[in-house]
Design a protein around this nucleic acid. Structure first.
Lengths: 115, 115
DNA sequence: GTAACTACTTCACTTAGTGAAGTAAATTTC
DNA sequence: GAAATTTACTTCACTAAGTGAAGTAGTTAC
């Protein structure tokens, strides 16, 4: 039985895996999705959770994801103003990727433990 | 019903998603897996398929994946010698990630078409 | 008036990736 | 027998991406 989606090299030039890779480019994007999958988060919460991320990169990634319609940004007019980020309906469709990555990552951790 | 694998921010410090991200780091790694998922490939075949990859990066990634036990490297003692790369049993377990990425990528392409 | 708070931006620096060129060794071509 | 070919890389100079410390803006608490 062939796979449900084309995984072979012939999926170019409009390869969906490459398209996903463009959205998930950079070290931090999947981890931002992971955190937002847990619910709405503020900028400072994301920065604390993503230990080591540069504020510039966090702002860049959030802006990119918002432009693509995967993340919603909401400014709360308090003092000082706060910003909330959450996944859109489109963004929530990253879930199967995160689940698959978590499964693969657990396997990789298992290899590392025995190596 | 909670997700089968921990997707929330509390999955640190040994977050399996972050572990997967380390293996799949860089622009090209998932595309190398995609190509090798289609079967054994030679270095020159991968270089042709991954249009634009630098030979240094291709060699680096293949070496990293071999060291992690996800890719098998076989030198054929012909003249000039050829090198074949294939997925190991561990490496083949990337399949669910590729399938999920392909599904997400198709959705992203769909968004792009209407934006 | 000084400090604190939040969400950033700016800037100098390091790391990752690019792409053209070079290497090695045998083998076919002239 | 000298030159060109083939494959899998390596080297090197350059550009892009990411880091991390510091700064900014506007308001309120002291």
């Amino acid at each position: 039985m062939p796979p449900a989606l084309p995984l072979d090299a012939d999926c170019r030039p409009d390869c969906p895996i490459a398209a996903a890779g463009e959205v998930l480019s950079g070290k931090w994007t999947t981890l931002i999705f992971r955190d937002l999958f847990g619910g709405t988060r503020r900028y400072s919460q994301l920065q604390a959770s993503l230990a080591g991320i540069s504020p510039r990169i966090l702002a860049d990634r959030l802006r990119m994801l918002e432009e693509r319609g995967l993340v919603h940004r909401r400014v709360i007019p308090s003092v000082p103003p706060k910003t909330e980020y959450s996944l859109t309906d489109w963004g929530r469709r990253i879930e199967p990727v995160l689940v698959a990555l978590a499964g693969f990552g657990q396997m990789v951790q298992g290899i590392g433990a025995r190596a």
